[in-house]
Amino acid sequence: MRKLLVLFNLLLFVNFSGNCQTKNLKPKEIVQSEFGNILDSLKVKGSILIYDVKNKTYYSNDFEWAKTGIIPASTFKIPNSIIALESGIIKNDATIFKWNGEKRKFKKWEEDLTFKKAFQVSCVPCYQEIAGKVGVKRMKSYLKKLNYNGMVFDSLTIDNFWLEGKSTFSQMHQIEFLERLYFSQLPISKRTEKIMKDIMQLEKTENYVLSGKAGWGMRNEINNGWLVGYIETNNSVYFFATNVEKQETNMEEFPIIRLNSTKEALKKLKLIK
């Protein structure tokens, strides 16, 4: 009887140890040269990074690029929106930003915008208003709470530190943050989480739902573009962070390049058709 008990405990220990090791396994990194071919065909340089949660596997054409900190540009509107909602500066997704009639960089910003619309058209003046109201001390406190590191700012740069300056966030960090948001691992309310998941939705089909946020900044005087987010399929969720550079471009072409390159990479992995 004692031998059976010892054997049973041993089997339990082995099973428990195996499960722990599986949970703590470092994700695999697989170089996907096809992603590089996609970027070459679009005449841009950069990295496409996709994370398969179920199989704990990263795919990218350039992992060195994917691990390099780059200014987050308007992808920072994700944590900025969370902070706006959690602090009460923004009441809900229908909160209105009043346009004061001044000329803005884009025509789509020259109107009264709901919070949801301001996020989706990436209204920089709207989010500069939010950051100013949050203030330096509260912004730093919330970013620490969210474990969103790498932002460098003070009272002089509180309204533009995500667009220019020394703030950096890598593609790997983007995915890690989005994964925590998606799986309810951020220290935020369910209400804020629900609003964020709603305003981030980009495309919905019978086979998948695509959510995310684009960004545009400058890196070494070269146009640098982001598209970060996740795609929900029938049986899983995959996270992505695309970062590309192009020396000469225009405001209409660059957003299309970011989206098309990401979707082509998702097709290569047979996640969408």
Rank of each mutant, 00 (worst) to 15 (best):
K56C: 08
K56W: 11
K56V: 10
K56P: 09
K56N: 14
K56F: 10
K56Y: 09
T57Q: 14
T57Y: 14
T57C: 15
T57G: 13
T57A: 14
T57N: 14
Y58Q: 13
Y58I: 13
Y58H: 10
Y58R: 12
Y58K: 14
Y58W: 14
Y59Q: 08
Y59V: 07
Y59T: 04
Y59A: 09
Y59L: 06
Y59S: 07
S60H: 10
S60V: 05
S60Y: 06
S60M: 08
S60Q: 06
N61P: 10
N61E: 10
N61V: 10
N61C: 12
N61Y: 07
D62P: 04
D62C: 06
D62T: 08
D62Y: 05
F63M: 06
F63I: 07
F63Q: 06
F63W: 07
F63L: 06
E64V: 15
E64M: 08
E64S: 15
E64D: 14
E64R: 14
E64N: 15
W65N: 07
W65A: 04
W65E: 05
A66M: 05
A66K: 05
K67G: 12
T68E: 08
T68Y: 02
T68D: 05
T68P: 04
T68I: 05
T68W: 02
T68C: 03
T68Q: 05
G69T: 08
G69N: 13
G69L: 07
G69I: 13
G69H: 12
I70M: 14
I70N: 13
I70V: 15
I70C: 06
I70S: 02
I70T: 13
I71R: 03
I71H: 04
I71Y: 04
I71S: 07
I71C: 11
P72H: 03
P72Q: 09
P72N: 07
P72A: 02
P72T: 09
A73F: 11
A73R: 07
A73N: 11
A73V: 08
A73D: 11
A73C: 14
S74H: 11
S74I: 11
S74K: 12
S74G: 10
T75V: 08
T75H: 00
T75P: 00
T75S: 01
T75Q: 01
T75D: 00
F76C: 00
F76N: 00
F76I: 00
F76Y: 11
F76M: 00
K77S: 06
K77E: 01
K77N: 13
K77Q: 08
I78K: 01
I78T: 00
I78D: 00
I78F: 01
I78L: 00
I78E: 01
I78Y: 02
P79F: 01
P79D: 02
P79V: 03
N80W: 00
N80V: 01
N80H: 02
S81Y: 04
I82L: 15
I82D: 06
I82K: 09
I82H: 05
I82Y: 10
I83L: 14
I83R: 12
I83G: 13
I83M: 15
I83K: 13
I83H: 12
I83N: 12
I83D: 13
A84C: 04
L85E: 01
L85Y: 01
L85T: 04
L85D: 02
L85F: 01
L85G: 02
L85K: 01
L85N: 01
L85S: 03
L85I: 02
L85P: 02
E86P: 05
E86D: 12
E86A: 09
E86Y: 10
S87M: 05
S87A: 02
S87W: 03
S87C: 03
S87K: 05
S87N: 05
S87H: 03
